[in-house]
Nucleic acid binder design. Sequence first.
DNA 1: ATATGCGGGAGAG
DNA 2: CTCTCCCGCATAT
Length: 471
Amino acid sequence: MKQTWDINDPKLPQEPKHFDAFQEWPDGYVRLIYSSEEKNAQRHLSGWAMRNTNNHNCQILKKSCLGVVVCARSCALPGGARLQLRPAICDKARQKQQKKACPNCNSALELIPCRGHSGYPVTNFWRLDGKAIFFQAKGVHDHPRPESKSEAEARRSAIKKQMSSYHHSQKKRPLNSEAGRYHDSSSYTNNLQNFPCMDGQERVGIITDSNFSIPAQSYPSLQNTDLYKVPYDSASSQEDQLSSYPKCPNPRIYMPRPCSYEFGVPTFISSSPYPTFYKDLTSPATDADPLSLNGSHYSTVTTHDKSFDNPGRHYGLKPAWGKTGSGDQGDYGQMQTSANHAYYSGDYPCRYSASPAPIAPPLQTVITTTTKVSYQAYKPPALKYSDNLCDVKNLQSYTHVAENVSGAIYSGMKIQEDFGMVKSALLYQHDSIPTKPKPAESMESYRYGLLLGNSYAEHEGQTLWFETAEY
DNA sequence: ATATGCGGGAGAG
DNA sequence: CTCTCCCGCATAT
């Protein structure tokens, strides 16, 4: 049943016979009808970082995509992945975020704005009507997926935990703390004890941590998973497990650091929590379409492996419309296609220099607006989506996961390619511009540098300047 | 501290 | 008028 309705229609289909499963990563010109009971829909959730946009229509909630925050140098993370942080939704928080340095290479972070809808950010519209929540997306994301919301939250909470535990430990040993803080491994150790996320092995790893680029051995780090629970359902648990295996190893890799960073908190380091996220898969699961599944991986890990390899191609291929049915590309499908391709083919690193191709498509106006519709305003009750999101029925994804995972591991180079995208500075959003962070800009960055530096140093060779970091 | 929503208002077309 | 974007405000986590 092709969706024949438009979010702006005065009358939307009544009593839809079938509700769509929640899609965390809708992309393309998609129209979906969720049950008003669907918690994620009630919360207008999306894996993409969407911010509220005032469309002066209280019946229809409009949100536009903020894009994704990446390392300006598009450095490769140890796993080969690229950093893909979720832009903070709050303007203020986003600005801060952009001032931080890449936790991996310490260079600046940059916000890749979304221009997937004729040069404008992809927009999502939500409208409650009776027992249904109508969702319509316009545009095709022309950038990699950021962390999913749940991932980002988990990361943050993990950091908090780390922080707090750190502090606790500090209290215990007030004297040493200062000195040991950054450099003293022992302190790390102590802290670690408190971190729920770490287990003995991990700690060891840290301490020893000579190599953290090496994938961890086999441990089931599922435990971690528990800690940070992802709201997403249980259904996916299986997936998680599966997926987690592959990933876990990596996570640990990162874990150490995070834990060690007591404050730092930079972004992804914290990724320690990642393991958690593997469940992100779940989300994909949520999506009905295969692509999403793939996507999940990426998104899943910002840091991890696989996330990368997909992004690039993923996007290129993006089936916005092709998507399982949900999309109705109908109307606007054409233009985006070309745009995307051009875009992604480019190289990430070079984004700036890159040609404006992406922009190419003139801003044609697509009907984006929401007309006023007589409708009752609705305010979905705030619900938690701690329950399961959806029915995850795609166990099949396991396979995918597995594949990807493994692939991810060595995908470093490849990723780069895939991942590459070109962006012209032209479209850069103001927000990002002004604040363009300089590497040395924040102390935090230093910190990162320090810690990371040791391990990652090889990559960028810029390790040195961290030394001074004081914090 | 952030995420979310709301709504005024500016500015471009 | 239509739309996007910016801004502040308020509320909920």
